[in-house]
Amino acid sequence: MGHSNVSNFVLAVTVPLPSLLFYLSFVQKCDGDRWENEYWTWVCDWGRLHPLYLVNVLFFLNVDILFWVVGLVQQNVWLIDPYWTIIPVLIAHFYSAYPAAQYDLLRSRAALLLIWIWSARLTYNYFRRELWQWGKREDWRFTDIRRKDPRNWWWKSFFVCFVSQHTFLVGITLPFYSIFTNARPWNAWDGLAFLVCLSGITIAHVADTQLHSFVARNNILKDLGAPTEPLLNRGLWHYSRHPNYFGEQLFWWGLSLFSVNLGQSWAVVGTAINSACLAYTTVLVERKMVQEPSRADVYRQYQKSTSVLIPWFNRSTLVKSKTS
């Protein structure tokens, strides 16, 4: 573990402390009807009535501003990537520990269990891909934007890398607001939502593991000077061009089902925005694939035969079965 890896680890552990310390103080000082001074009286009065506002304020100050400043100093916005796997857990516990929270115990425990499993899976996949290093690289999409307009990147990065992630992360965790502000008893729809979420996590994990094995195998072939495989079309990737994205979206829509069941369908808006963004990301990934000469032709054939997102029968397999 090199010096930069150690320093980036320390940085990653340190940056959320302002929000964590404030929130621990908030929970401790606002859990009751008597507050120690005028400042906390105002904070508790306002904060207890507006949990959504408070989570946005903390996110803006601690992520949008602080992470942005760190990115400018390091000239690398890597920090938002590992925190994508952690912030939803923090937000979920923010709502669960809220002084005015009310909820069904079984639904709340199930939801927290799900977000922890989701986070463990995504965190493991992130660091496995990054060879267990902190801050090795930033998202290739951010790097592309930086290269195209380096002069204006210092201010563009604030909106592209942090304000946008603010919208996505607070948006997709809105179901936790529903779960921890509604004590309606657990029912069959909650059970269905739980199973959908677990299915999404499982599909995403299997797909990412298959992708990791494919990349690792190609790296070995490259080191040996042997021809590499241009395309992964085995396993789940035989039935979908982006099964990892499908699993991820299935998880968040399953979580949104909790909100719908609680009569708060408005909370799905964040999931819808995230899905729209993922659709655009899918377009960017596929453009990148067909721009690489070594795989352009085979990937175009793959596009013709394989479902873009939802796993479905592969058309090339169907044609072979009909002609055999």
Rank of each mutant, 00 (worst) to 15 (best):
G171T: 12
L221D: 11
W237S: 05
W40S: 02
Q264E: 10
G225H: 05
V319R: 06
K304R: 10
V283F: 13
F180V: 01
R234H: 05
N8P: 13
G200V: 03
V160W: 05
F60T: 15
Y98C: 08
R217K: 13
L90T: 08
T41K: 10
R107I: 03
S265E: 03
P243Q: 02
E292W: 04
Q210R: 07
R121A: 11
W253T: 10
R128W: 04
D190H: 12
V55N: 06
F168M: 15
C44Y: 01
K29L: 15
E248K: 00
V196A: 09
D64L: 08
W84G: 12
L58K: 03
Q210T: 11
V319L: 09
A279M: 11
Y280E: 13
G71T: 09
H212W: 13
F194A: 12
N187G: 15
L198N: 08
L90A: 15
P293S: 05
T281W: 14
I65N: 09
F258V: 10
L90G: 13
S7D: 07
T167W: 12
Q28F: 07
F246K: 00
P293Y: 02
A188D: 06
W237N: 06
P227S: 09
H50F: 11
T228K: 07
S119C: 14
L72M: 10
V77M: 08
S19A: 15
T41F: 01
G135R: 07
Y124P: 01
L61V: 15
F258T: 10
G247A: 01
H166T: 08
W68F: 11
Y239R: 14
A100P: 04
Y126M: 05
Y280A: 12
N182M: 02
F142E: 03
V160C: 08
W42R: 00
C197W: 03
L278D: 12
A272Q: 08
W155L: 10
P230W: 13
L106I: 12
Y126H: 05
E38M: 03
N125F: 01
N233Y: 07
L309M: 06
N125I: 02
W132K: 04
V77S: 13
C277G: 14
A216W: 08
L195Q: 04
V43R: 03
K136Y: 10
L174P: 11
Y124Q: 06
I310E: 03
Y302P: 01
A97R: 09
W253Q: 04
I117F: 13
Y83V: 00
L11S: 11
A216C: 11
G263W: 02
S213A: 15
N219L: 12
Q28N: 13
L198Q: 05
S96N: 07
L192R: 04
W68K: 09
V55A: 07
A279Y: 15
S213T: 11
S316Q: 01
P99R: 01
H166M: 15
L17H: 06
F127H: 04
R287S: 02
P88I: 05
G71H: 05
L262D: 00
L72N: 08
V73A: 11
P18R: 14
A120L: 15
T123G: 08
V260R: 03
F26I: 06
W84S: 09
E138F: 05
W116M: 14
V283P: 05
M289A: 15
D33V: 09
N219I: 00
L195R: 07
S294R: 07
P88W: 03
S294E: 11
W68D: 09
N314W: 01
V43C: 02
K288F: 10
G263T: 03
